[in-house]
Lab assay of single mutants.
Amino acid sequence: DTLHVTQDGKHIELRGLSEEEIKLVEELLRRGRKVEEALKIIEELRK
């Protein structure tokens, strides 16, 4: 699936995420994380 995010005035499209990963990214962003940080966390969880 694809998640569309706008952060720091930039539109970012995150592709290839599972539904659970999207929920996790959304939660991390709500808690003030940056998109880059959220993606690093997803990458770690995929290992």
Rank of each mutant, 00 (worst) to 15 (best):
D8F: 00
T6V: 15
T6R: 03
G32S: 04
E44D: 14
E26M: 15
K34Y: 13
K47Q: 13
L45G: 11
E44K: 06
E26G: 08
E43K: 04
S18M: 09
I12A: 03
G32Q: 03
E19W: 10
T2I: 14
E37M: 08
T6E: 11
R15D: 13
E19F: 11
D1M: 02
L28C: 01
Q7N: 05
K40F: 10
L29E: 03
L28E: 10
R15F: 15
R31N: 14
K40W: 12
T2M: 06
K47S: 14
E44R: 08
V5P: 06
V35S: 02
K10F: 09
L17N: 00
Q7I: 15
S18C: 11
L45P: 01
G32Y: 02
G16E: 14
L3Q: 07
E43N: 08
L39T: 06
E21G: 01
E13G: 02
E27C: 05
E37T: 09
L24Q: 09
V35G: 03
I22Y: 07
E36S: 11
E26C: 10
I22M: 10
E13T: 02
K47I: 11
E21K: 01
E27G: 08
E37F: 06
K47A: 13
E21R: 00
T2E: 08
I41F: 11
D1W: 00
E36N: 08
K40R: 14
T6M: 13
V5M: 02
A38L: 15
E21D: 06
V5I: 08
G16W: 05
K10Y: 06
K40I: 14
R15T: 15
E20Y: 11
E13S: 02
H11C: 05
E19I: 14
E19Y: 12
K34L: 15
E20S: 12
H11P: 06
I41W: 10
H4V: 15
E20V: 12
I41D: 08
H11W: 08
D8H: 03
R15V: 15
G16K: 02
I42V: 12
H4L: 10
I41A: 13
E26F: 13
L24R: 08
R30M: 11
E13I: 09
E20W: 08
S18D: 13
L24H: 10
H11V: 15
R30L: 13
R30W: 04
T6N: 12
L24P: 00
V35P: 05
D8L: 01
K34M: 12
Q7T: 07
E36R: 05
R46D: 03
T6P: 06
R31K: 14
E19Q: 11
I42H: 00
R31D: 12
T2F: 11
R46Y: 02
V25S: 01
T2C: 12
L28H: 10
G16C: 10
E36G: 07
E37W: 02
D8C: 03
L14T: 11
R31Q: 14
D8I: 02
K47H: 12
R15N: 15
R31E: 15
R31G: 14
L45Q: 12
V25P: 00
R46C: 04
T6H: 12
E36Y: 09
E37C: 08
L45T: 12
D8A: 03
V5C: 13
H11K: 11
I42D: 00
L28Q: 09
I22K: 12
R46P: 02
E36Q: 13
E21L: 05
R31W: 10
I41C: 05
E36V: 12
E37N: 07
L28G: 04
E37Y: 07
L45M: 12
R30I: 13
L14N: 10
H4M: 04
L39Q: 06
E21A: 03
H4N: 06
K10W: 05
R30P: 03
E37R: 03
G16A: 01
T6C: 14
E27L: 10
E26Y: 07
E21M: 06
H11F: 11
I41H: 09
L14H: 06
I41Y: 10
I41M: 12
E36I: 11
K47M: 13
